[in-house]
Design a protein around this nucleic acid. Sequence first.
RNA 1: UGGGUCGUCGCCAAGUGGCAAGGCACAGGGUUUUGGUCCCUGCAUUCGGAGGUUCGAAUCCUCCCGACCCAGCCA
Length: 573
Amino acid sequence: MDDKKILAILTKNEESGSKDFIRQIIEEDIRNKKHNGEVHTRFPPEPNGFLHIGHAKAICLNYGIAVQYGGKFNLRFDDTNPIKEETKYVDAILEDMKWLGTNWEDRLFHASDYFPILFDYAVKLIEKGKAYVDDLSAEEIREYRGTLTQPGKNSPFRDRYIEENLDLFMRMKKGEFAEGEKTLRAKIDMAHPNMNMRDPVMYRIMFKTHHRTGDEWCIYPTYDFTHGESDSIEGITHSLCSLEFENHRPLYNWFLEELEIFHPQQIEFARLNLSYTVMSKRKLIMLVEEGYVNGWDDPRMPTISGLRRRGYTPESIWDFLDRIGMAKSDNLVDYALLEHCIREELNKTANRYMAVLKPLKVIIDNYPEEKTEELEAINNPEDESAGTRKVPFSKELYIEQDDFMEDPPKKFYRLAPGREVRLRYAYFLKCSSVVKDEKGNVVELRCTYDPETKGGSAPDGRKVKATLHWVSAKHALDAEVRLYDKLFVNENPNDASEGRDFRSNINPHSLEILTKSKLEPALTRVKPGERIQFERKGYFCCDTDSTKERPVFNRTVTLKDDWLKIQRAMKKD
RNA sequence: UGGGUCGUCGCCAAGUGGCAAGGCACAGGGUUUUGGUCCCUGCAUUCGGAGGUUCGAAUCCUCCCGACCCAGCCA
């Protein structure tokens, strides 16, 4: 993934669509030579969890704009709360950012880099009489804040002299007070209709080791006092963030104006909600910590690392995020669109192979015992340059259990007793009898083949309705295949019944592990991370759990399946 | 009942006073050695509702209804 590809995706979709409201504003600003017509964006994650596709929406917006308008892009960790942040999250975020194709050049920053400047800013506000040290406890502050409909009341410490505030703040910094004993607050308006303006806390005392500054500080600025100033320090022209910060914009503006520093323009957009999954970091952490999934990069997770392991590509994610657009209305985007994007890409790029996921043994009675033929197969019908490969064929094969029915309904046109089908790239095959176990389960098929149909077409011109994939039994590779499905049964997992939460909507069948799958031998060459198509079954990605002896494949997405639709329709009748 | 936002097809989303783009989903049909891909076709007389202004309104005005965010020393 690089800027050229990003630009290509962005322009491709722009041709048919139109510009979102943020790009319209930015183009207008460029036209008006605001900020000398320059654009500088940023992505400011807190390193307290893994990035998910909702973050990717913000990343692609900010980075995409920088690329499109010849601007710059910063990556800044908003690390103002030492008790939540960890280096392992920093590392994971960096990896995901690179994988998504963003390039911040030498502009990797941390809000913690600005602690000294922020401290000076705080002093400046105290000196201006715009900030004060408050002795109120957390509970008292809450009480004094008032409610949504009632104004708050002033703290008794609100009118301390500037000198006293300065002295107290210095002593806070020196560690003379206990955690929670004092805070620094902005002096704005305790009766303001916007709760954020009711003397928000700027600094709190925390005797905690910070992942970067260690024990240098025992007072830490709040996000509200840090964020706007950090953007200002970096010269961010357009601070793009999600809707919930709309209420904070007046506060950020207040700080910027009182401090008389560069004023970025904040524009808010709606965050992404995806059907059948959750996007809040808190909930994602619960899924990980309570063992509903196997870690942050579980292929069922909407995290970047999960999607990557599932087999999604950065291209497909960019395409998806570009297609959903950018607006301010609450949304719940259909998961099917994400699936469409990865299918569309993999259809063009993934090589095809034959793999029998749930095997059923087939014995061809009229095929010579020891014979093996090498049949030529096309790697990718959508890409001639992908070439061909050889697939071994012999007397004993596996076909998919789903491809045989003893007593088929009318619309089923795969294999059945007495019926003829084509084995892909091989021969026509006719089922002569069925072998069952004591319980009556079909365990083996006895068939015959027509030697005249080599390659898959009959000289006499007769047709078959179906083409099946298959694997030669003695050449087959054993593999584990992990079939993933939606993590939740509800479109919106947060719609839980009374007294229950999103966990009650978890899909108990989101993972099916197949341990007896049979692969064609060419699959030996496939390496972890590689994406392929198992013909007629779906797109799969070789998992990092693979060993030489035992490859593991994750199902990224199924192929579209009309037969499934027909079956559903038949059930209804 | 305070403040800030948002309501256009099942899901996203254009539209900014001149007569409802596009994508996904869905439904038909064609091609096909993947029931895949591809290709056709269909899919909002109507824009949360009601009034009003105008020759003309999704777009302007008024009122009403619904949804979301805010009462962390989280971000």
